[in-house]
Design a protein around this nucleic acid. Structure first.
Lengths: 165, 165
DNA sequence: CTTGGAAAGTCAACAACACTGACGTAAAAT
DNA sequence: ATTTTACGTCAGTGTTGTTGACTTTCCAAG
């Protein structure tokens, strides 16, 4: 049941109970993390999938459907349904690739950018409030643990993004 | 676009870009966080909803349906569908309350405890590896930020749980 | 140059899991 | 005795995931 504790000072906190608390903290925190966007999305008849698509199109304008698939970790059919509604609703524009005509490059329209802004404002506010409540050292630790928890493939992608900090 | 930075040293890192990275880190990390249980659950034809129910019944044996509803944040119809399958599959036992016969107290059977163990072993391993990779200070910060990010109601519940650390 | 395969994307059908709303039963509370 | 609470269920709906089958486009081997 209990962690062996044979290693040294750095292992003292790694009991099963401590780890379970960390798991629950992650579960509850993620609920908070998505609570504000979820409320906003309800007003638009969109869901989290739309939010994710809009977020990453904003982050990487001109990205292809295939790129998004790798980042979002869903099937292309699932993403396609979401993109179709966003495109037909005029939030996302899909341009046929000039070099490779199989590809579709995705961009937010003005309207799409407005929704992205509304969603990310709310989410950033929560993140900012949390950061302010705990201070910079805690934030640094928070980010370290999150990175360590990612699947290796996504961690590599994420670290590549980090370069422009 | 940019954070005002008028406050002082503790605000220097709170640019919109930094906050967006934090948001993405949370998104990617949560994927990693659920990846191992998801793989296991596929073998049992169960989903995350079953995992959550099993986890919190393990955490609080004898908890009532109503208690679980508050913790999981779903409707009773949704939870009931999950509990029904878990009970009929023999993973969860539902006992009528002795003091208040309206209540149903939920317990894991031996089989249910086995699944809980398999799921939480995988999830704890990931959490433990991440903790070990970053060290205790980072973990303390991680936990602080997660708590700050929770909705107030869940934060109160979570802090009450924390007492037995 | 043609042909065959791989890649990017789309359409259709289905499953999981969330939601609302309505209803029923039993037990507790008033 | 009436109301409220706890729980279960049925019916219907929506989002989001899945697999399977398909078109278009690209590219490379023959």
């Amino acid at each position: 049941m209990q962690e062996a504790r044979s290693g040294g000072e750095a292992l003292l906190f790694l009991t099963d109970e401590q780890l379970r608390k960390g798991i629950e903290a992650m579960f509850f925190a993620y609920r908070g993390f998505t609570a504000d966007p979820d409320r906003i999305l309800n007003n638009y008849a969109y869901g989290r999938a739309h939010h994710r698509a809009v977020h990453f199109i904003h982050r990487s304008p001109g990205t292809t459907v295939n790129n998004l698939l790798g980042i979002l970790g869903v099937t292309k059919q699932s993403l396609n349904r979401v993109l179709r509604t966003l495109i037909s609703d005029g939030l996302v524009e899909s341009r046929v690739g000039t070099k490779d005509k199989r590809e579709r490059h995705l961009y937010l329209t003005q309207e799409g950018a407005t929704l992205e802004r509304e969603l990310s404002d709310a989410q950033r506010k929560r993140m900012r409030d949390a950061y302010r409540a705990v201070g910079p050292d805690a934030v640094a630790g928070f980010r370290k643990v999150l990175e360590a928890m990612m699947e290796p493939e996504l961690r590599r992608y994420f670290k590549a993004l980090k370069d422009d900090e």
